[in-house]
Nucleic acid binder design. Structure first.
Lengths: 328, 328
DNA sequence: ACGATTTGCGGGAACGTTCCCGCAAATAAA
DNA sequence: TTTATTTGCGGGAACGTTCCCGCAAATCGT
């Protein structure tokens, strides 16, 4: 069909105007009468004009692409997938492409992006460190605790501590006194994983409860999970399960129910990172909805603002889109 | 650090040559003495030169980006995440970027890519249909059964039927006579889902067994899964569970083991789409490893060849990277 | 009414590549 | 030796934008 796209010159010729006029009309710059601006916009639509990103990139000296780094250990989680789509959504709005960053960083990759979003980076994650060293505008979602942290120009964080405390308080209000945390293995070491553990422990101490932490591992097999649950409930006598990773609360639900235990009565299960159809909206599971899609979009917006203003001081921003869902 | 990248002109000046010479040396075109070619390559590396994709795109009239469409229903599956990384890997090798396609297609998106990969498209998936209508080179991974199918210029398929039959035969060899299929809800309607069901049913009939199909839904909650398993085993008296979706076999494992059933003895569980750490390599679960990463890479290679040769006839290609893992 | 300013628009260059062509020197064919 | 051909390289244009500047006409201030 449309083998060769309409250019700005086609519009100009069609209307007997100059390319400059058309360009500034479309770009919203310069001084142009409203009538002409509308006229130009109209014919642009009619001709199916879409601006040639290569030409623009070349001219304005911007790549038009942002990189997205997802921690290798945890890529399978739905959270990251949703987050990625949130990023692309925000990117499209600001006229960026998104490229996924795989393991190793070739120097060329660093030059092919205007900026990078790293979600839940482990401190010292080699790819991120390399990116930072090359001076590329970088947003860390969750704090990056590794070397070169001072070069991170933007950090986006959710109110994990507050949200988690709300859920824990709710547990307390329901009379639970022996809640156990199914914590993600520390090997990941993301600020989220670290903070979660700390929030839980501090909260326990503050409320005079004994912390019960059980490691599970981000890619835990169902068997590992069962083992951890058994350990927590049978040996530890837990009366509530606080699940860190997405989906683990829902899985715990089956395990416990298959033992004849009733959620909400015999014990409670809550999720710190509720999965869409599994936990969020589950009438028996209190959960935190991290709103990954909006989270990703917010990250892109932050990155974009940093790219626009490269010399600004490092900025820390809070993501306000997360929410808790409490049962009953 | 590197605020402004070295250009081809910088290399030319440094060596007292012309940009043409440098360009063709780097691009491997034209007639150049080997000595000069090496020399140019050397200094290019030394200066950290990396070709400006915008300039190249503009000149050679190619976008340098391919779109990836993942079915909205099933995005959370690890398979698609791995597949996406396989695509980016292959794309990097052929010097493409990858952009994720979200729900709606704005006409501009269609013009911002050289081609599209659609993995497991539902027949009639609106985004894919729109893409096809716009005449963009398109690869369908799994068959696209919808309107405009004749415009699909490349199809990549794995030998699902053969692989699945191997697994089923293995079940038969182990003495199982009442295997039940946990099938993904037909709403998705991808060729994989349809073929799977058909393969199972035909195989049953061929072997004189009664087909037992239980719907589960791609985003089934653990509870739904438990219900299906209960139905299959308790009511249907199944002696083997054939799981369609990734991760369901591993979940079935817990459900069954928590009932005191021994996998491999009392009954068998197999997966038609083994998840990496959960099922593939699980000593109790036979599974098909779809090798999503390699699969994705193969898809990009196919798409690239189509982009190079736009007028070729539609091509169907088999992906040979999948494999089965049989227990014992 | 006359100068100053603003408004509306166009010419041209530049971004970094690739590619077509041209041309001298070297080499081969006669 | 003379004539063809090949080899090695450079000049210049073009891809589609954006942006700086210039300039006439319209509008304003007094």
């Amino acid at each position: 069909m449309a083998r060769t796209r309409a250019t700005i010159m086609d519009i100009a010729r069609e209307l007997g105007l100059s390319k400059t006029t058309v360009s500034s009309a479309l770009g919203g710059t310069g001084r142009i009468s409203d009538e002409k601006r509308e006229l130009i916009q109209e014919t642009a639509d009619r001709l199916g004009y879409v601006t040639n990103r290569a030409a623009r990139s070349l001219r304005v000296n911007r790549i038009g692409t942002i990189g997205l780094h997802i921690p290798p250990v945890a890529r399978s989680l739905a959270f990251y997938m949703d987050f990625a789509f949130g990023v692309t959504e925000g990117a499209a709005a600001a006229d960026y492409d998104v490229t996924l960053f795989a393991r190793e960083l070739t120097p060329r990759m660093a030059f092919q992006v205007d900026g990078v979003i790293a979600i839940d980076p482990a401190p010292g994650e080699p790819l991120v460190a390399a990116l930072l060293a090359s001076g590329i505008p970088t947003v860390s979602v969750g704090r990056y605790g590794g070397p070169g942290e001072e070069r991170v120009q933007g950090t986006l964080e959710a109110h994990h501590a507050e949200l988690q405390t709300q859920v824990l308080d709710h547990l307390l209000a329901r009379g639970r006194r022996r809640p156990a945390l199914l914590a993600i293995d520390d090997a990941i070491g993301s600020s989220w994983a670290v903070d979660t553990r700390r929030t839980y422990t501090d909260w326990c101490i503050r409320n005079g409860l004994e912390p019960r932490v059980h490691e599970v591992g981000a890619n835990a097999s169902p068997r590992d999970l069962v083992a951890a649950i058994t350990q927590a409930v049978d040996i530890g006598g837990a009366d509530a399960l606080v699940c860190g990773a997405q989906g683990q609360a829902a899985q715990s639900q089956i395990v416990l129910e298959s033992r004849g235990l009733a959620l909400g009565k015999d014990l409670d299960v809550v999720s710190f990172a509720g999965a869409a159809a599994l936990e969020t909206g589950n009438p028996l599971i209190s959960s935190i909805d991290l709103a990954p899609r909006a989270y990703g979009k917010a990250a892109t917006e932050l990155l974009d603002s940093i790219i626009q203003e490269p010399d600004a001081l490092p900025v820390h921003r809070w993501f306000e889109g997360a929410s808790v869902h409490l049962v009953r």
